[in-house]
Design a binder for these strands. Structure first.
Lengths: 322, 322
DNA sequence: CTGAAAGCGCTTACAG
DNA sequence: CTGAAAGCGCTTACAG
C-alpha cells in the first residue's frame, strides 16, 4: 500500500493539488467554493491522507517542531510541569514540543540530521560547538544565555541555596554545613545551590560551609557524627531526599531535630511533608517558572525581548525541621 | 546568510553533489579518491554544512527519528531509565529518540504534520483513531499491543500488586487494605496494581481489599483510624509516597509498625529507605525492563518477533515495615 | 572513478 | 475561482 499523497486526493476529488493544499491549509485569500471544499475534505478523510511533514518542512524551510533539550540527570516533577505548560502554550501557535534527553558526552550535531526543528529550547547549557552548529543551521535557540556560560537556571539554583542559608542564619545558626548529593549527574545543580549557600553565609560574616556528600537513601550517620563533633548546628541539604537521609542520621545518634541539629531541604517533596519532624524546605513556584519559560520561547519566536526573570522565584516552607 | 547546501560544498570543492553525498554518507560501494574525500570533508566543515533533515527524509521516504509517546502522568525515574537505555541502543542504529508527552484529550494526528518518525514507541496505549492514523501514514508502532487493549505495562502493574499482596499474605495477614493515590492521572496504574492485589487475595481465599484514596504528603490519620476499627492489619500502598503517608498516619495514632499495622509500598524510593521503620517495598528491575523495551523496538524495526516479557520482573525488598 | 538528471511531496507565485 | 509549473535539498539509479 503506497502512501497517499495530495495528488491522490486531487485526482480523486477532481481538482488540482493547488486547490487541495489551499483547502487543507485554510490558506487565507484562497477562495474555493463551499462544495469543492467539502468534497476535498471528505476525500482526504476517506483516503486517510496524511501530509508529509518532510515535504512540508522542505518546502517551507521551517518545521513546526520545537525540540526541548534536557540534561541527562534525573529531572523530576518541576521540569515535567515546565514542559507541560510549554507544550500547551506553543500548541496555540501550531507548534509541537518534543523532548531530547541529552548526554553531555555526545554531540547534538547528529540530531539535526534527523530533524529540522523550528526552535530549540535548552534547559541545560549547550557546548560551544553545539551552539555554533545550530546557529549555522539557522536553528533558533532559546533558554540559555547565548554568549554567557550561565543560564537562568543556574541563577535560580543560586537563589535557592541562598534562601536556605538565610533561613538558617535568621534562626540564629552560626555553624552551617552543606549536604550534597553523591550522584555526579547532579553536580551542576549542586554547585549552584552550594554557591548560593556560601554567598549568603559570607554576607552574614559566617564561616563558609563545607560540603559533604550524603547519599540519598542511607541514614547519614557518619556525616551527622562529624558535624556534631565540629559544632555544626544546621545543615542545608541539596534536596529533600538528602535532607531525609540527614534526618535519619540524626535519629541514629539520638540528636533532636531541630534543637540539636536543624535541617532544610529543597523541593517540597511529599515524603518530606510526612517526615518526623516534617521537613522545612524550599519550594519552587513552578507555575511562575512555567510562565516565564513559555513567555521566553514565545518572545524568541516573535523576535521580541525576553521577559525578565521573576524577582523572587523560590520560597521557604517552614515546618518542623529548621 | 543563506543556508549552506550540498551544492555549495560541491562547488567549493570542485566536485558534483553526487560525490559530496557519497563521501559524507560513507556510501558503501562508492569509490572516491582519498584526497577528494579529505577535501570534501574539509570543505563541509569549513562552510559549516549541515544537511537538511527534511530533504533527506523526503528523499529516503523514512527519517532516523523515533518518537516515544509518554502519558501525561508524572513518570519518574523508571521511565527515565527506560528511555535512556532505549536512546543508547537505537543510537547504534543511527536512530534518534525524541519524547512526546501526550495528553489523552488531544489527538496525536497533528503531530505527524510536524514530524515524520521512523517508528513510534508507545509507553501508554493509543486511542484507536491515533493508531489508525499512524498505520495509514506508514508509521511503525511499537510497545503497545496493537489489537488488544492491554499493554505489557498493564501486565507489569498487575504483577507488582500481586507481589505486594503475596508478601502480606505470607506474613499471615488476613485483612488487607489498599491505599490508592488521589492524583487522577495515576488512575490507570493504580487500577492495574489494585487488580493484582485483589487477584492475589482472592487466590488466598481472603476478602477482597477495599481501596481508599490516600493523598501523598499528608499523614493518613483518618484512613488509618478506619482501618484499625475495621480490623485491617496490613496495607498495600500504590507507591512509597503513599506508603509513607500511611506510616505517618500510624504514627499519629501511636500504632506500631509492623506489629499493629504492616505497610508495603512500591518503587524503592530513597525516602522509604530512611523512613522509621524502613519501608518494605516492591522494586522494579529497571535494567531488565530497559533491555526488554529496547529489544522490542529493535525487533519491530527488523521485522522480527517481539521478545517475551521477562518472567519475574519485580521483587519485594523486605525491610522493617512489613 | 565521477557527473547530469530524476524525483521524493509539498506550497505558492503566476497565469488564465 | 482554478491549474500548470517551479523549486525546496537531498539521494541514487544510470550513463559515461
Amino acid at each position: 500500500m503506497a502512501r497517499v499523497t495530495s495528488a491522490d486526493v486531487a485526482r480523486e476529488a477532481g481538482v488540482s493539488r493547488t486547490t487541495v493544499s489551499y483547502v487543507l491549509n485554510d490558506t487565507p485569500g484562497a477562495s474555493v467554493s463551499r462544495v469543492t471544499r467539502e468534497r476535498i475534505r471528505e476525500t482526504a478523510t476517506r483516503l486517510g491522507y496524511a501530509p508529509s511533514a518532510a515535504a512540508r518542512t522542505l518546502r517551507r524551510g521551517r518545521s513546526d517542531l520545537v525540540v526541548a533539550v534536557l540534561p541527562d540527570w534525573p529531572t523530576g516533577s518541576v521540569v515535567d510541569t515546565l514542559l507541560d505548560h510549554l507544550t500547551d502554550v506553543l500548541a496555540t501557535r501550531g507548534l509541537f514540543v518534543l523532548v531530547h534527553h541529552h548526554r553531555d558526552s555526545r554531540s547534538l550535531a547528529d540530531l539535526w540530521r534527523a530533524v529540522t526543528p523550528h526552535t530549540v529550547v535548552g534547559l541545560a547549557p549547550f557546548a560551544p560547538d553545539d551552539l555554533r552548529t545550530m546557529q549555522r543551521a539557522g536553528i533558533r535557540v532559546v533558554g540559555t544565555a547565548q554568549n554567557a556560560d550561565e543560564t537562568s537556571f543556574d541563577v535560580a539554583q543560586r537563589g535557592i541555596g541562598a534562601l536556605q542559608a538565610e533561613h538558617l542564619v535568621a534562626a540564629g545558626h552560626t555553624r552551617i554545613a552543606y549536604a550534597r548529593p553523591d550522584d555526579p549527574r547532579l553536580g551542576r545543580f549542586a554547585d549552584g545551590r552550594l554557591a548560593g549557600v556560601r554567598a549568603a553565609c559570607a554576607a552574614a560574616a559566617l564561616e563558609v560551609p563545607a560540603a559533604v556528600p550524603v547519599p540519598a537513601g542511607e541514614p547519614a550517620a557518619a556525616a551527622v557524627a562529624a558535624w556534631r563533633d565540629a559544632g555544626v548546628t544546621a545543615v542545608a541539604a541539596y534536596n529533600d531526599d538528602v535532607a531525609l537521609a540527614v534526618l535519619a542520621g540524626a535519629a541514629a545518634h539520638g540528636l533532636r531535630v531541630p534543637d540539636e541539629l536543624a535541617v532544610i531541604g529543597v523541593d517540597d517533596a511529599p515524603a518530606g511533608r510526612v517526615a518526623a519532624p516534617p521537613l522545612t524546605t524550599v519550594a519552587q513556584p513552578v507555575a511562575q517558572q512555567s510562565e516565564h519559560l513559555a513567555a521566553s520561547v514565545l518572545a524568541a519566536i516573535d523576535g521580541a525581548d525576553a521577559p525578565p526573570w521573576p524577582d523572587d522565584p523560590a520560597l521557604v516552607v517552614a515546618r518542623g525541621s529548621a
